[in-house]
Design a protein around this nucleic acid. Structure first.
Lengths: 223, 223
DNA sequence: TATTTATCGATATAATTTTATCGATAAGAA
DNA sequence: TTCTTATCGATAAAATTATATCGATAAATA
């Protein structure tokens, strides 16, 4: 009970993060396969080959998501899609607010994909009076000053932070004070929050480093 | 020699990816510390406390980057910054092209941070005639048809892909054909490339999944 | 019907990554 | 100068994650 929350018989185990990160990739792939309606069943071997993951790895990940397959055939494509949706909780949508309607914020507001993944960005906030009152991708832009009240009123749990470095901490503080539970931080600085608040920091520099080291290794190998 | 490339005595070892991802975070932190000029030396204990990483972990990561510290004092802040810069190769800039000047593409073009991390986006490409000829954050937008020739002429190694799902594979193919070495893929689909080409896929769905599972766990624990 | 085959599921091994331990060192205080 | 303390660096243990093995199963084929 301490580490593994439980509710109505549904247990949330501590899932390996790498597995968690791969599941959406399988999902996206399966959706494409399903649209192309090429087969009713699909095997780990095929998924692995197509996605450049070891088949055994795929099977283990799917086992974690409680998928059940049939020997010689594989997994039913439609069933597998639903299994993953259920497992990731994409059937009950979570609502979120976004703060900072710059280029990045607008890009996220316009990304239709999120709804598919159980996230619904309800509204956006900014301090710029020129943006307040407008709509971006069908989402209303409100003044950032209204954020705390709105978080409380709608009991929003996730805040998406797409503001410049200079105001990131300040906006995060406002969110926390209003009772937010999790912050998805796209700003280029680390933000400090009290214990218990979840922060997921999207750090492009980290990804870039991984890419360029791989590149350096590859170019060196050829030389 | 097979796995570890070598050139001019400089060895590129296979660095643990988690370490690689944390180094930029230390770097950003150290830069802030340096600007605030609070101390000449800094210890792993302090870095770890401030960044919510175990001090031992910090020390191991810094060891990988060849940093040397002094007992009782810690690491010289300025020296440490340079050590990380050297290690990550941020002193010799890599040039890149970006394809797809939508909201996300524009956000990346406007992100000043990249230059600090050794990446210089030289120009951008798009198929939209309305965008071609304009400038975004000081970078010229050229027609996508010119991409292959430009990659060859400038011997560009990194391509940044910020196009819609529908044209991602097509643009990736064009890059590969022109001789690109690595693709940083922000489009929401997996792209297929020949062996030897490096692809780093930025998948927001993966991050979102990690965030919402953590949130679910945390909400459950409280309930 | 018997045989072959592809694949799953469970279990076991290997590799990687994280965390802990402990002696060595140098600064600062007694 | 000697003692205490904070910290590094090296080495060791633990935890996590990835990969391999192998029997069981069900479809396809002979």
């Amino acid at each position: 009970m301490a580490e593994n929350g439980e509710r109505k018989g549904e247990v949330i185990k501590a899932i390996p993060e790498p597995t968690l990160r791969r599941l959406p990739i399988y999902y996206q792939y399966l959706k494409r396969m399903h649209d192309e309606k090429q087969f009713e069943y699909i095997s780990c071997t095929r998924i692995g080959n197509d996605l450049n993951v070891l088949p055994i790895q795929v099977r283990k990940d799917l086992q974690v998501a409680d998928a059940v397959g049939k020997p010689k055939l594989g997994y039913g494509v439609t069933e597998l899609i639903h299994t993953i949706e259920d497992f990731l909780g994409w059937n009950n949508t979570t609502e979120a607010y976004l703060v900072g309607v710059g280029n990045l914020g607008s890009a996220l507001l316009g990304y239709q994909g999120f709804r598919e993944y159980g996230l619904n960005i309800v509204a956006a906030f900014d301090v710029d009076e020129k943006k307040v009152g407008t709509e971006v991708s069908g989402k209303k832009v409100l003044h950032a000053a209204k954020l705390p009240e709105m978080i409380r009123r709608m009991s929003i749990k996730i805040g998406i932070l797409t503001v410049p470095a200079s105001s990131a901490q300040q906006q995060a503080d406002a969110m926390v004070k209003a009772g937010i539970h999790a912050i998805w931080n796209f700003s280029p600085v680390k933000i400090n929050v009290p214990p218990g608040i979840i922060v997921q920091h999207e750090n492009l520099a980290s990804s870039l480093v991984v890419l360029s080291k791989k590149l350096a290794l590859s170019l060196n190998a050829k030389a």
